[in-house]
């Protein structure tokens, strides 16, 4: 900001106002610049997560294994059967909301809390679970496994 010439012959009060104005302007610039540059700095997780979650490559998922992935606010269990087929189900046990896991020795999905079991179609086959697990959709694109909501 260019000050008009008459301001150059200032009294001390005037110079004080000038300092405040200039200082305020600089502080204001800083107050704008700080959030702005923080915003521009890439966040830790560089990309947004999606409705379709990438589980990993097909090769990272051996036969007869299972993995839990986070899907929004809920866990999803992705299992690969002995035949090589990939399936995904909600990993929330229908009994008391624990998180289920794949047990190779049982060849089924198992809940550690009360020993509930589901077969690899998500059906409750033993223990206290009252309902099957909700299925999710699995798609394999170029060796990558994706899980998405079952519509």
């Amino acid at each position: 900001m260019e000050y008009p010439p008459q301001l150059k012959q200032q009294t001390s009060r005037r110079s004080f106002l000038g300092y405040i104005l200039a200082g305020g302007f600089v502080a204001w610039l800083a107050a704008i610049a700080y959030p702005l540059f923080s915003y521009l700095r890439p966040p830790k997780q560089a990309e947004v997560e999606v409705t379709s979650v990438k589980v990993g490559t097909l090769s990272s998922l051996p036969k007869e294994s299972g993995v839990i992935v986070r899907f929004g606010n809920k866990p999803v269990i992705v299992v690969r059967t002995a035949a090589g087929e990939v399936r995904a189900f909600s990993a929330t046990c229908t009994h008391l909301d624990c998180t289920v896991q794949y047990r190779k020795d049982f060849g089924s999905i198992w809940c550690a809390c009360h020993n509930g079991r589901y077969d690899l179609n998500g059906r409750n086959i033993a223990g206290p679970p009252p309902r099957p697990l909700d299925p999710y959709r699995v798609s394999i694109q170029g060796g990558d496994v994706f899980v998405s909501k079952n519509v």
């Binding site: 959030p35 915003y39 947004v48």
Partner: peptide, 18 residues
């Protein structure tokens, strides 16, 4: 369609001052 909502969620939670 897949990303719009999530990206705004991402902006408001993950990006600083987003």
């Amino acid at each position: 369609e897949q990303l719009a909502f999530e990206s705004i969620q991402f902006i408001s939670s993950k990006v600083s001052f987003g």
